[in-house]
């Protein structure tokens, strides 16, 4: 399969946090959601792909090009939005674009202006007078103005109003219709991904939990609620994360059918997984465990 992005055994050690051997691949023409609780390592992964942060080990390939050996050619195929768009505050949007544009051979100034109009960005206002949402829109306009084959977005919808958020998701969905553009999209607003993502990659505490298709996750994973008596040693291995409360437990199971087989008829409630629940449980891993 032709991949827009291949990440193999990516490792990065910080004091107090280690990203451990992350591997995943994003096929060309698809959207992948990168999810996980705060501090799981999502932003670090995106920065490692862009070489903004230096990796300790591992390999990144962008459209088949090595992220280090063919860095310039690989990055020319990438459009990116960082979680805090870094712009010169005293410049206006066209001034900022005039700085970024020369770095890309395929920069399309007309497309940039059209996107700015569509995003209703004020062209005569300095960037430091922009709200976070507007700065995010400007970052998106620059990321989409040079025919990138891989779009990396770090929390792009945070700070955006619901109307524009919906528009952005539709735009991203439209981008991949050409079959050559792919999107990797980290977010904590998981409802966006349920609507949009073809693939999901989930990280927790710097470790890969899974990387697979959204449908597989939604079909195979489940939330389970029940009494404490169900948390026996033999059942404990069913659950990836358990949250205990005064009236029983709620847990995340990665094999819905096995959970159903073992717990059906014993008072357990097995629900279809929502991505919100997934992130919640992974963030609350074994809370209240005795």
């Amino acid at each position: 399969m032709d991949h827009a992005l291949e990440v193999r055994n990516l490792r990065k050690r910080y004091p107090g946090f280690t990203l451990k051997d992350i591997s995943f691949a994003l096929p060309r023409g698809y959207i992948m959601g990168l999810i996980g609780p705060n501090g799981a390592g999502k932003t670090t992964i995106i920065k490692l792909i862009l070489n903004i942060v230096r990796r300790d080990a591992g390999e990144v390939k962008i459209c088949g090009l090595d992220g280090l050996d063919e860095e310039s050619a690989a990055k020319a195929r990438v459009g990116f939005v960082l979680d805090e768009p870094p712009f010169y505050g005293y410049l206006k949007a066209p001034g900022m674009a005039s700085i970024i544009a020369p770095f890309y051979d395929k920069w399309d100034g007309d497309l940039f202006r059209r996107l700015c109009r569509e995003f209703e960005l004020p062209m005569r206002k300095r960037v430091n007078a922009f709200s976070r949402g507007m700065a995010m829109k400007l970052a998106l306009a620059t990321a989409l103005s040079h025919g990138a084959e891989l779009i990396l977005l770090d929390e792009p919808t945070s700070g955006l109003d619901p109307v524009f958020r919906r528009e952005l998701l539709e735009r991203l969905s439209g981008l991949i219709h050409d079959g050559r553009t792919s999107v990797l999209f980290s977010t904590h607003i998981t409802s966006d991904l349920e609507r949009l993502a073809d693939y999901l990659t989930c990280v927790r505490d710097g470790e890969l939990v899974f990387s697979t298709t959204r449908d597989e996750v939604l079909e195979n994973w489940a939330t389970v609620r029940g009494g404490e008596e169900l948390l026996t040693g033999e059942n404990r291995d069913l659950f990836t994360a358990v949250n205990r409360g005064p009236y029983g437990f709620a847990a995340l199971a990665c094999d819905k059918e096995e959970a159903r087989r073992r717990l059906a008829g014993r008072g357990a409630v097995i629900d279809r997984l929502r991505l919100d629940d997934l992130v919640y449980f992974l963030g609350q891993k074994d809370k209240g465990k005795s």
Partner: peptide, 19 residues
């Protein structure tokens, strides 16, 4: 000093090119 203030080093490190 300006690049430090606006934290634009990350932006330019992400654009095509090498360190």
């Amino acid at each position: 000093a300006i690049d430090d203030h606006y934290r634009t080093d990350a932006l330019f490190a992400g654009l095509p090119g090498s360190r």
